[in-house]
Write a protein that binds this DNA or RNA. Structure first.
Lengths: 133, 133
DNA sequence: CTTGACCTTCCCCACAGGTCAAGGTTGATG
DNA sequence: CATCAACCTTGACCTGTGGGGAAGGTCAAG
């Protein structure tokens, strides 16, 4: 199977597959005599694993660790769980931060008339700085 | 005032200040005879405005628009409000997405023994794909 | 004069790819 | 066989928001 078909089957782009190979996330694919990359069922599995891990928000670095654990028959599931937990914590942290930003902005918006007068509390707060922690 | 002091006073880095100038977010700073950038009270105000806008999660592109509105005495506050609302919507969207990822991961983690056995439901789900929408 | 802190410009690095170019392969058609 | 479209290859450059550091100029104090 060529890279394009592998891409379509996994939902990745051909570009991404080459990129993953270039950064060492994937082992170099087999090649035809003319240099085309060839992918088999195993490779598709790995690509799909990467795709789903990315969809869950893991960084490529984390995906690399997950792949290692996946391919290691001796791994402890505790390792995977720890990685996932760590990722959950990062997500929660990000969610909190974004929520605080949103709330702050929401406050500002609610104090803004939103009419045609140039007077705007949002800009005033941005200029004066009393809005930010 | 030199760029280093301006940076310390506003919480930006000298690097960022030069960058903002290079992309046209800031007007080119005045220079001494020897080429050093010099910042006055007005410039500090603008830098602080940028810093606070960035802290609220606006992109540099959005900051540029806010700056324009800020410096435009004829602006309508409705414009600022619309920009802020738009940003709030983007934040909400991102928060939702991250929350869904977290919940999915949380489910997976809860089904994982987390012991020394190699059997791990998280990896199984990542490999099989039934976990993702 | 020397030292050290500061400034300047310039280039490379990160993430996670997108986009385009120039050229080689492959397979199907006339 | 010629040709054409669709596919593949590598490579280079773009995004956004800077960080890090090199090479060299400037300034103030000792």
């Amino acid at each position: 199977m060529n890279i394009g078909q592998a891409a379509r089957q996994t939902g990745l782009s051909a570009k991404m597959i080459r990129y993953y190979e270039s950064i060492g996330l994937l082992k170099p694919a087999h090649r035809t005599d003319s240099g085309y990359r060839v992918y088999g069922a195993d490779d598709l599995h790995t690509l799909a694993f990467i795709k789903r891990s990315r969809d869950l928000g893991f960084s490529l670095d984390e995906v690399g660790r997950l792949l290692t654990l996946w391919q290691d028959r001796q791994r402890a599931s505790a390792d995977v769980k720890a990685l996932a937990r760590q990722h959950i914590e990062a997500l929660n942290q990000k969610i909190l931060e974004l929520g605080q930003l949103r709330d702050t902005l929401q406050d500002l918006v609610e104090h803004c008339q939103g009419d045609h007068r140039p007077d705007c509390p949002i800009l005033k707060e941005l200029a004066s700085g009393s809005c930010c922690a």
